[in-house]
C-alpha cells in the first residue's frame, strides 16, 4: 500500500512503513540465524557470497552509477587482500593494535584504503579515456597486478602463496566459519548502508550526472576530474575491503586466484542483477556466486550454463533481474487494470 509522504524525514528514511520494518527485522534475524542452521561448508559459501556482494556494490557505484568500466577489478581485490595480510602479520604482536580490538577491523579498512590509492591511480587516465580505451587500461591494470604478484615473492609469497593469520578480537580467535560469517556480513550491511546513503547524497547525484552525460554534468558545475577519480577510489575501496575479508576466509592467498575471469564474473554480477541499483548488485552477486558453487556437480558443463544464463538475462532483460522484479511488482500493484 502506498502512503502519503508528509514530512521530509519520511522522504529521507531508508526503511518506511511497518511492513518494511517487519521484513527487515525478519531478514536480519534470518541472516543472524543462518550459520546455526546450516552445515559449515554452506556457511563458507555464504562468506564468499558476502564478499562478492561487497565487490559488486562497489563495482556498481563505478559502472552503474558513474558509467565508467573496469575490467580489472580483481586487481583491487588482490591489493586489498595482500595489504590486509601484511598489516595483520606486522601488527599481530603490537599492543596498541590489540588494545583497539585486534588488527581485524583495521585490516578491512587498510585493505580498502590501499586499494583506494590504486583506484585513484587507475582513475586518473579515466579523465581522458572513454569506453573501450578505458576498458583496456583497467584490463591491463588487472593483468599487471597479477603478474607483479607472481614475480614479487617478497610481497605475495610468489607461487608458494601466503598463509593468513586467523583474525582475533582481543584474545578471542575468530577462525570458525560462524565468527567469520558475522564479520563478513556485518561489513556487508555496513557498507551497503554507506552505499545507499552515498547514492542519495550530492556525490551520488554527481555520479549519475556523469553517467548520463559527462559534458552536461560539467556544464552544470560537476567537477569531472574529482568525481570520476572519486568513483574509482570508492569502488576500489569496496573491492579492497572485500579482498581483506577474502584473505580471512581463505586463510591463504595465491596470485592466480586473482585472474581476468574473476573481473568478468564481477561485472556479470552487476549486469545480471541490474545496473545502477544497489539491490540489483546484491542480488546478482548472491545469484551468480551460489550458481558457481552450486554447480560443482555439473562439472564441465558449468561454463556453458553460466554463460548461457548471462546471455539469456541480457537478451531478455537488459535492466537486469532486479529491473524485472520491479516490473513484476508494478504489474501486481496495478493488476486489475
Amino acid at each position: 500500500m502506498t502512503q502519503l509522504i508528509q514530512r521530509y524525514e519520511e522522504e529521507m528514511a531508508l526503511v518506511r512503513g511497518g511492513a518494511a520494518w517487519t521484513g527487515l527485522v525478519l531478514l536480519l534475524g534470518a541472516l543472524a540465524a543462518l550459520p546455526w542452521l546450516l552445515p559449515g561448508y554452506y556457511v563458507y559459501i555464504l562468506n564468499f557470497v558476502g564478499i562478492n556482494v561487497i565487490v559488486a556494490i562497489g563495482l556498481n557505484l563505478l559502472v552503474g552509477y558513474t558509467g565508467q568500466i573496469s575490467l580489472g577489478h580483481v586487481g583491487f581485490v588482490a591489493i586489498g587482500a595482500y595489504a590486509a595480510t601484511h598489516f595483520i602479520r606486522a601488527t599481530e604482536a603490537s599492543g596498541v593494535v590489540a588494545a583497539l580490538g585486534g588488527p581485524f577491523w583495521m585490516a578491512v579498512f587498510i585493505g580498502g584504503a590501499a586499494a583506494a590509492v590504486f583506484g585513484v591511480l587507475v582513475g586518473l587516465p579515466a579523465i581522458r579515456l572513454e569506453g573501450p580505451y578505458l576498458t583496456i587500461v583497467t584490463l591491463g591494470f588487472g593483468l599487471a597486478v597479477q603478474q607483479i604478484l607472481i614475480n614479487w615473492p617478497a610481497v605475495s609469497g610468489g607461487r608458494i602463496g601466503m598463509f593468513v593469520p586467523q583474525p582475533a578480537l582481543g584474545s578471542f580467535v575468530l577462525g570458525s566459519d560462524r565468527s567469520l560469517y558475522y564479520l563478513v556480513w556485518t561489513v556487508v550491511i555496513g557498507m551497503s548502508l554507506v552505499a545507499f546513503n552515498l547514492t542519495r547524497s550530492h556525490v551520488g547525484r554527481a555520479f549519475i550526472a556523469i553517467r548520463d552525460s559527462d559534458i552536461a554534468a560539467e556544464v552544470t558545475g560537476v567537477n569531472l576530474k574529482y568525481y570520476k577519480t572519486l568513483a574509482f577510489a570508492v569502488s576500489a575501496f569496496y573491492a579492497g575491503a572485500a579482498g581483506a575479508l577474502l584473505a580471512y576466509v581463505m586463510q591463504y592467498l595465491e596470485p592466480t586466484m586473482f585472474n581476468l575471469y574473476e573481473s568478468i564474473y564481477y561485472l556479470a554480477m552487476v549486469v545480471v542483477g541490474g545496473l545502477g541499483t544497489i539491490p540489483g548488485a546484491m542480488f546478482g552477486a548472491v545469484l551468480l556466486t551460489l550458481l558457481q558453487y552450486g554447480l560443482s556437480h555439473a562439472q564441465e558443463y558449468l561454463p556453458v550454463i553460466y554463460g548461457g544464463i548471462v546471455i539469456l538475462v541480457m537478451a531478455l532483460e537488459p535492466m537486469g533481474l532486479y529491473g524485472r522484479w520491479l516490473k513484476i511488482k508494478l504489474w501486481m500493484k496495478t493488476w486489475p487494470m
Binding site: G23, A30, L31, L34, L37, P39, M282, V286
Partner: peptide, 24 residues
C-alpha cells in the same frame, strides 16, 4: 527508495529460505 529496500529485503529472504532447505 522504499521500493528498493523492500525488494532487497524480499530477495534476500528468498535466498535465505532457499539455503535453509539444505540439511547436514
Amino acid at each position: 527508495m522504499r521500493l528498493k529496500v523492500r525488494a532487497y529485503v524480499g530477495w534476500l529472504l528468498v535466498t535465505v529460505m532457499a539455503l535453509g532447505v539444505a540439511l547436514p
